[in-house]
Design a protein around this nucleic acid. Sequence first.
DNA 1: GTGTTTGCAAAGTGTTTGCAATTTA
DNA 2: TAAATTGCAAACACTTTGCAAACAC
Lengths: 139, 139
Amino acid sequence: MTMVTIRPYSQALDRLRAAGLRPTRQRLALARLLFDGCDRHISAEQLHNEAVANNIRVSLATVYNTLHQFTDAGLLREIVVDAGRSYFDTNVSDHHHFFYERSGKLCDIPAEMIGVTKVPDAPAGLKISRVEVIVRVDG
Amino acid sequence: MTMVTIRPYSQALDRLRAAGLRPTRQRLALARLLFDGCDRHISAEQLHNEAVANNIRVSLATVYNTLHQFTDAGLLREIVVDAGRSYFDTNVSDHHHFFYERSGKLCDIPAEMIGVTKVPDAPAGLKISRVEVIVRVDG
DNA sequence: GTGTTTGCAAAGTGTTTGCAATTTA
DNA sequence: TAAATTGCAAACACTTTGCAAACAC
């Protein structure tokens, strides 16, 4: 391997490949918005607005589809804190959240900053899929 | 205390009084459904169905209003685990929840069965209003 | 080419609102 | 009777769906 080829979208492309999702124009563009940069908590509507602002032609329906496909593929995690609004978290590693009730904003809390002890076993051989801690802040 | 007077509605009535809510027919009936019996997690629609099944004439709008008034008064706690559906918990004391993702059911976990340590301070003088632990069970 | 993905607009879900009629104190 | 509460139906916000056209491999 002697030459370095310029590969825009590469991170996004790799993620789609790894997830077995066809790298369509829309998925690539959305993946770039989501994953090129720092971790974020974003709603479907926010992402759609951002796409439009970046001259990416994509429908809201496709944004919803894509967010769910990414979530199913483990690229995103869905967070529900508020009735009637879903956020998607680009950070899928083990961590928790502050939720600012007034503004509706979310903020990560690294896993190691909260200790959860003595979680009871799931009843009847069921498996615990996640232990979620939400620290609700009144501001 | 020599005689035991039969006082239907009394628990519900007392709760409404304590909360400063006028004991209307609808509120009394809903309070009885909610508070006479064991603790429960119930949605607006479920409560409305239950009311109708018990020949209580009350509109869905009033059920929503009432649930929110009760929540504001501290008689209920709202729990959001699922996008687009709110549950109301008649147990307002400190505790946590199992959430069965497949069936959508909630189940209490007593506060003392889960230890949460080292919760980081809320930023900038904000107050933590609640630390919520949801143990998501895949069944 | 063939199966997948997209966009649109329509339908769906859960919740809230405006307002006249009713009820409570 | 004055103020609070209710019911209805319409409005709402967010999300999903059906299907024809466009696209990826």
